[in-house]
Nucleic acid binder design. Structure first.
Lengths: 336, 336
DNA sequence: CGTTAGCACTCTACCTTGATGAGTGCTAAC
DNA sequence: GTTAGCACTCATCAAGGTAGAGTGCTAACG
């Protein structure tokens, strides 16, 4: 599709623009990257590349910048991840220091680390709780009117919900319900708890089915929100170091999206199969993100489920380096 | 200290500048606020006010803007909170709609509402857990190596922590510890749990005192972080609508502070006695906040403790309106 | 004596202008 | 096929020039 020389030129443009954020001209390439052809020849190649849609011109008589398609080609051509630089590697090691215990902390620390390394926004999403399994359901009475329902998952996450005791139901009844649920559903994955049918229970409980169903739904989604699928943002201010965000309006829109958790989750949602995903510019379905790229890696904590780490930056992001960083860190978290 | 006419002039300047964000000149005041004196007279008053430090001039031959001290005088002179406008009141009512249940949701909804009403950053801090009381300590075994410790408070909050079982200790031992703690400390406030002395326990437990102490500390701080003292930010992007933040560098510094939870908590910390507190410009001890004001109201949820709601904006913030808003909403949350 | 009109002065914001330089596209020669 | 040369385009920047808002001062007024 692209002959060798066109590739060389395209890659030079991409690399240079990623580094400098300035449109890159034919002279610059001829001088800085010497592959034995003159500026004029490069100009011809550039004209071709532009016609094919790999690069574009901000205005006549400016240099060229890669288009979304140009970046896409560049990313797809990266066969192998580069090594981490020594600097990056030591920074990461120092940051994670001794232990990797205590989840909440790790997510936040990771987010902060990544954003300071990349000057981009980082998004860390905790492992999904959907695939963990029920260990125990319990109830603790608070007073005559209310009690706490607790759901313990086999990875140690606990969700709790205060319920008002429905009239005519005592804590003893609730306790009985918990016992039954535990007996029936222990070892089942959390997402299957939705199927529970309370109206099948005996006595007053069956009649109060809706009350229980509502409480259970809250418990389950609480569990999902608690740590699992918890969304941690890092360094929304670091991205202001990037020259593209000198333009306020652009940054404002991006920030606005980041404030809505559901949108963030949708952005990060990866293609099912691949361990990495890269969404470049308009490939993101949100219009506000049309000038951003999002690179996401998956991590797995054995027995706890799947989470995601993402870096969001301008399309002019250091794809190879970020991919390496994410690769390294996702493995680090994964084995913790 | 200020005669009546000087007060009138100062207040006119403050109100006008709050509304327009433009330095206000003598002509403007004479025309827009008619208290029967001419522009020239006002100029004389302004010269006095400037010398006294209530207003300042961005540069020669510009209008005047209030200084921190001017705002302070204005705020201190507000005897009575104005009524909420009908618009504000209905927006709030609609937003809180039916129920006020489910804490986490309420905090976030409140933050979002406040920041959209004011075009400022809102900071909502959940009720402190320190004054709640221990209901029950429990342990649930996960597998041979680890278990979940759970601490239930009398307001229904639950903290949990996964612990590796120290060698030589079984779940049964742990269960015993929990039972003892529950028996001894039920009804005590959470912050007194720190005093617990594990080395007094019998057998292998005493020997493992540090393990337990560490776990307990984590539990307690987990409880505090969980909902209590949870910090929720809203609308960091809305503040970009304010003309003062056209200047990126300023906004960047503010945002950076907001990313560090501990700093945010310090900013919001109110004077002990007053239900409201207003920190204007340099009164904030953080240098980055020297051009911002923070208005904080306290709310109390009966039996759950004390929380805070703050609005952070430029010093040119609508003090009376924001105070009314905070007053209204803090009461609303409080009774929920 | 306090208040006011008038006026010269100051300073910013904005526009225009022109010079500079980077970069292109085309053409003709190698 | 490649390259040098050249005319042309366009953004950026500094310089100059104008308009407008606002001040401080002075002198006059009631």
């Amino acid at each position: 599709m692209l002959d060798e020389r066109k590739r060389q030129v395209l890659f030079a443009i991409v690399r240079d623009y990623i580094q400098t954020a300035e449109p890159v001209g034919s002279r610059t390439i001829a001088r800085r990257y010497e592959f034995g052809i003159g500026a004029a020849t490069i100009r011809n190649e550039m004209a071709d590349l532009e016609e094919m849609g790999f690069i574009e011109q901000p205005h006549t008589s400016a240099g060229r910048i890669p288009s979304d398609r140009g970046y896409r080609y560049y990313v797809d051509s990266l066969e192998t991840l580069p090594e981490l630089t020594v600097v990056d590697a030591t920074l990461i090691k120092r940051h994670f220091g001794g232990r990797l215990r205590g989840h909440e902390i790790v997510l936040e620390a990771t987010a902060r680390l990544l954003s300071s390394l990349t000057n981009c926004v980082s998004i860390v999403i905790g492992p999904s709780a959907a695939q963990t399994r029920l260990k125990v359901m319990q109830v603790v009475p608070l007073n005559e009117l209310s009690a706490v329902l607790m759901l313990v998952a086999d990875n140690g996450l606990v969700a709790s919900e205060v319920v008002r005791l429905p009239e005519g139901l005592s804590v003893v009844d609730l306790d009985e319900v918990c016992r039954v649920i535990t007996a029936h559903y222990q070892g089942r994955t959390i997402d299957r708890l939705h199927e529970m049918n309370f109206s099948a229970f005996a006595g007053g409980i069956g009649a109060r089915a809706e009350t229980f169903e509502r409480a259970m739904d809250k418990l389950i989604s609480g569990l999902e929100r608690l740590e699992g699928e918890r969304v941690v943002l890092g360094g929304a201010s670091n991205i202001l170091n990037q020259p593209e965000f000198k333009d306020l309006a652009k940054y404002r829109d991006v920030l606005k999206v980041l404030e809505v958790q559901e949108l963030v989750q949708k952005l990060v949602a990866t293609s099912t199969t691949n361990p990495y995903s890269v969404s470049i510019g308009a490939e993101n379905h949100l219009n506000e993100m049309r000038d951003c790229s999002i690179i996401t890696a998956r991590y797995t904590i054995s027995g706890e489920g799947i989470g995601h780490i993402s870096i969001l930056g301008p399309t002019r992001i250091e794809y190879p380096r970020v991919l390496s960083l994410l690769n390294y860190i996702s493995k680090l978290i994964g084995q913790g």
